[in-house]
Write a protein that binds this DNA or RNA. Structure first.
Lengths: 204, 204
DNA sequence: TAGCAATATGAGTAATCACTCACAAAATGG
DNA sequence: CCATTTTGTGAGTGATTACTCATATTGCTA
């Protein structure tokens, strides 16, 4: 149920890069199809189904990806990159003392997840089934390190905060997605995000 | 990759209850095999593999479970029950003012996860692939409600705390499982668990 | 001990899976 | 224009899947 037919077990990277426009279209169609199938969750996430949904032959799919795992990995990569970009955008143009950096980071993080709630929830939850957990863990570590480097906050504290926030957001995403936009929810999340820091970062 | 061959889609409940000892042994063997395969994560979680690992014929498996999803559901049920029991044990013999109830709940929760870290991590992560997310969400809600009922703490605060703690524990379980036993980790976790409560529950 | 219900078995079927390969079509560069 | 490269195609293969059912075995009860 998790991984049948012993498909190419590792081999997570794409096979070859597209060089012409139509090849790029093909790759994009494959990724879109993968995202759609993950979102719906009704069709099995198999190479055959992805190719069908993408309107692309199964042969074309295998020219660019060595298997469904690889497509999943590419989608996770994309999602992780979005998160990283959102955080960097906040960190870069931070009027270093005027704004509440933590709250802005929180807002960006929640927004990144609320934009595609179903896909995000599935991506995180299914990563383990594709042995992609450490991929997400590494991304989390990197994000924490990056925030710590810019702000000077203790990295261990930042990591703890990131894990807690991620847990709350993902759990809420799965059961009460509408709450993500509530300001009450944001305030509660803010309290949790601040908790790991003993030295006051920016007392309200 | 997530669910092929359109197996019986719903049908999560067991088929029939064992009435003789050997039938009970059979069911236990099936569940143990399911847990083992999930833990290893290398063999696919399919009815054929589970039956093989259990040393039981595929026919016997289908006498008690309508499919792999059902076995997964049974394992989740068991894990949820363990968590609930651990919490209830703490809540029941609570010398209502002497002990730090929150810390004890935390200890019980972490212990329940640290005992079978690999299986626990897989169970939580793979639940979505089997459309069992709401099952876990319902268990989380129930647990929060139960704690709130006994302690009198605001239910919304408790739920927030539970989600944050669960997120930290699961993330740590996946990337740094050895830290679960660290007292420094516990202190940080404690700070996070307290964060949602505005009215001091039990100031240190 | 005889009979009946409960249980265990595993070969067998049809569907679906991952993945390849010989070939056709399109783009590129000269 | 043509040769070469890049891209797209999909039938086909063998493996694995979910799941059933006729049959054999075991345990209970009278």
């Amino acid at each position: 149920m998790v991984s049948r037919k012993e498909p190419n077990p590792s081999a997570l990277k794409p096979r070859k890069a597209p060089k012409q426009q139509r090849a790029t279209k093909t790759v994009e169609a494959i990724l879109e199809a993968g995202a759609h199938i993950l979102e719906q969750g009704v069709h099995p996430f198999t190479t055959n189904h992805i190719a069908e949904r993408a309107g692309v032959s199964i042969g074309s799919l295998y020219q660019y990806f060595p298997g469904a795992n690889s497509i999943m990995a590419a989608l996770i990569e994309k999602h992780v990159a979005d998160e990283r970009d959102a955080a960097e955008a906040v960190l870069s143009h931070a009027d270093n003392a005027k704004t509440d950096l933590l709250r802005e980071l929180l807002l960006a993080f929640v927004k990144a997840h609320a934009d595609a709630p179903r896909l995000t929830a599935r991506l995180h939850a299914l990563a383990a089934g594709f042995d992609l957990q450490q991929h997400l863990a590494a991304a989390r570590d990197a994000q924490a390190a990056s925030i710590a480097a810019v702000t000077g906050w203790p990295e261990a504290d930042v990591l703890m905060s990131v894990m807690a926030v991620e847990g709350v957001v993902l759990a809420t995403l799965a059961s009460r997605p509408e709450q993500l936009k509530s300001s009450v929810f944001m305030d509660r999340l803010y309290a949790i995000a601040r908790a790991p820091f003993k030295t006051a970062i920016r007392p309200e």
